[in-house]
Design a protein around this nucleic acid. Structure first.
Lengths: 210, 210
DNA sequence: TGAGTTATGTATCTTTTGATACAATCAATT
DNA sequence: AATTGATTGTATCAAAAGATACATAACTCA
């Protein structure tokens, strides 16, 4: 697939025609398959990936445990690369494609340049920083103050809100990774929830009740 | 004290003369006493505080426990207000002056405006976002993966690095607040450290050994 | 000086979380 | 059908953290 003007039907954040021209001129298009690792901890990033379609999962890893920082969906970009446009910076997180994902790749040096030229770009950048920060702050508050069973419940609530479905297709292990704990802990908590008639457990998915 | 050109001896981030003029024109000067609460959770902020001298502590609170997010020192500003310049936003943290603190207060609406006009301002803004994000990410990783006794040790290491002193003037209760736990837990850990000859405990301060 | 306040020490008990081990079940593939 | 791997269920044990309660020590200031 080629980069074309159609792109901006999906990227409504960039309204100025001049900016659109520049994006078409400098941008490259990339397709990632499910499971592709796009960003690694310690890696230096000199490009800015903007997701067109699909989903990236950004997480931290320590030994065999990992924890979710945030997802990058369509029209969003990644903090880590954003930072390295201004400063020497190595990513402190990993990014992996959760599904087939289409990405617009821009050279990092343009970020600062466009910041001064295009209000919509400037707003996009700030918005990215702000929302990532908020998400992280939120996750931080949860980890610092809430016991895991509450965080599991909140994960479910969030899922229902976003996906509008009571059937959550996730394994215990994966859920444990999202929340930064271990599989046994999650299985234990879910079993307890089942006893309390809050959920029904199946292989590969969880059915929420009420 | 009046706002004057002397200000920019302390605020080296703003190099353009034009920008300096604007700051002198629109900025107000504020003195906060130790203990003054400048930002409250839930509060809407339409101003941007930049610390000239002194120190602000920004933290979250849940019931009777609190946890440190970051400090704002000279030449730095606060994420929360930065965000509200662009979006409707209520602060999700509290900010308190740790010592007598001098603050330059700017109307929030100028943030976006200056972003497009002054490269040094733009850089300052991004730098703020980035470093606050990094700090938070760091704190997050600690809370998610490290047991409290390790975080206590890291707190000490950090203190020595910044203050260049082995004598840490802090009460157990305050240290507990910094790390988001309770006093008894901290006392227990410190006593253990003392048994291991890592520290000596006194009323009001902790003496690090070796 | 002595009354009140803040800081520290510590014991006991409970809850939460984590580590390890193993069995049972389901799914996919040869 | 048999093998393999992923998923789930659970039991046991240990460690970390939190809650509560109470005693003591040190400071402060009227």
């Amino acid at each position: 697939m080629e980069i074309s003007v159609d792109l901006f039907k999906k990227l409504k954040s960039f309204s100025e025609p001049e900016l659109q021209k520049e994006i078409l001129k400098h941008g490259k298009f990339l397709k990632a398959s499910k499971g592709d690792i796009l960003i690694k901890e310690g890696q230096y990033l000199d490009f800015l990936p903007i997701v067109i379609k699909g989903l990236l999962r950004v997480y931290q890893q320590k030994e065999d445990r990992e924890i979710l920082l945030y997802y990058v969906g369509p029209e969003q970009t990644c903090m880590m690369s954003l930072s390295s446009a201004y400063f020497d910076y190595n990513s402190t997180a990993n990014g992996i494609a959760m599904e087939p994902t289409e990405i617009l790749v821009l050279p990092a040096h343009l970020i600062a340049e466009w910041q001064l030229k295009y209000p919509s770009w400037s707003k996009f950048i700030i918005k990215t920083f702000k929302s990532r920060y908020d998400e992280l702050l939120n996750a931080f508050g949860s980890v610092a103050f809430k016991p895991i069973h509450v965080r599991v419940t909140e994960y479910f609530t969030e899922y229902v809100k976003n996906e509008n479905s009571n059937k959550i297709p996730i394994s215990h292990q994966t859920l444990a990774n999202e929340l930064g704990t271990t599989r046994v802990v999650i299985s234990r908590i879910l079993k307890q929830f089942e006893k309390e008639k809050k959920v029904k457990l199946y292989r590969g998915y969880i059915q929420l009740k009420a």
